[in-house]
Design a protein around this nucleic acid. Structure first.
Lengths: 205, 205
DNA sequence: AGAATAGCTGAGCTATTGCTCACAATTACG
DNA sequence: CGTAATTGTGAGCAATAGCTCAGCTATTCT
């Protein structure tokens, strides 16, 4: 599934180890700079400075600023610390535990660098390709959850598709908020309440 | 509670009707331009052009670009089509209806211009004053909901404060998503499921 | 070693943006 | 009227951004 957007492709493929290292330093620096300054104020010159390479080098591996952030986001999506839905427990009486596993997954995927993730999602001007990639990822997850809801004996909701959308988004956003603005409520407490809400919903009274 | 941030105050107070009209045209144009181009690409010159006034006039009523968007957001907050919590039904067996009223409020406050609201919240560099205003508004709502949860006979949750935070945010974000990306699911269906989820949570099994 | 290739540099070009200011036009008011 | 106050104008300034390119250095290959 190759990206069709030329504007996100590097102009040169690194052929030496040195080059690969430079590319990596750029990405690491970019993550730091975006986190610290946000996307708009995270200039390419600042990234190059932080990576201790010249601005010219940066533009040998990334055709433009967007491509740098795109690469970071792609990596985050691909890494996907996602508990395969098929590995989740489907026996009766375990719905609560199943939901808790979902919540934990969400927390895990946010705990690495919540600030950067927030910037990538909220501030960045995402290209159509990126949006497609995110969408694809979302569809896969939704399908998995829908399948899980269909097969779990304790689940009683009207439309499984709607329910899957609803709980995925709810878990995602609440986790996102919790990680981005920490301190207001203990993580464990909030996670437990969140799991409660979803569980009670799925059990259908 | 006057704003202390000088950078958001207009430099001149309009004294003639003509001036008031100009100010209004700027705000209307800004709403359109921000909606169409986003915040970063919605330049002040574009706003002036659309309002059919000169860029100089724009800067007589707003000290900078941020102030324009701040004014739009303030207005949205102040308008607040908010069903007073005290007007909500607290008699037993009506929890479902009460929650539905909350969901409807959220939908109403988003339906006017969801795209603009998204931009204001997600793209704009909000000043501390703005953030404070939003925070204040949020606290008031949270307090109202907490009060409601405490007094409603059908509500059975552990910590009322956490529950209030959780359901307000969940309703807000799900509504936000539904209005911003329309078409995927019928609004009524989604709203009903959302209300179901919250209701079942609050009833505590 | 020497040529060829790959990688790196950074001054500065081009484009754009938020915003100013000297001035003109309009309105208020005696 | 005539004068002062208010409102409106828009060329252009200063700052900053993304990005290029001519030339340098490092590595690889024969």
């Amino acid at each position: 599934m190759p990206s069709s957007d030329r504007r996100l492709q590097p102009r040169r493929k690194p052929r030496q180890i040195r080059a690969e290292l430079t590319r990596e330093r750029i990405l690491i620096a970019a993550a730091h700079v975006f986190t610290e300054y946000g996307y708009a104020a995270g200039t390419t010159n600042r990234i190059a400075e932080r990576a201790r390479i010249s601005i010219g080098s940066l533009y040998q591996y990334f055709p433009n600023k967007d491509a740098i952030l795109a690469q970071l986001l792609i990596r985050h999506i691909d890494r996907g610390t996602w508990t395969g839905a098929d590995r989740l427990d489907l026996s009766p009486g375990t719905l609560r535990a199943t939901v808790q596993a979902l919540v934990r997954d969400a927390i895990d995927s946010h705990s690495e660098d919540p600030q950067l993730l927030r910037i990538m999602i909220e501030e960045a001007p995402l290209s159509q390709d990126l949006l497609d990639a995110i969408d694809r990822h979302g569809r896969i997850r939704t399908a998995q959850i829908r399948d899980l809801l269909t097969r779990h004996p304790d689940v009683r909701v009207g439309d499984v598709g709607t329910a899957a959308d609803l709980i995925l988004f709810t878990i995602e956003m609440n986790t996102h908020k919790m990680m981005a603005a920490p301190g207001s409520v203990p993580v464990e407490t909030f996670a437990a309440e969140l799991a409660d809400m979803v569980t009670r919903y799925l059990r259908g009274d």
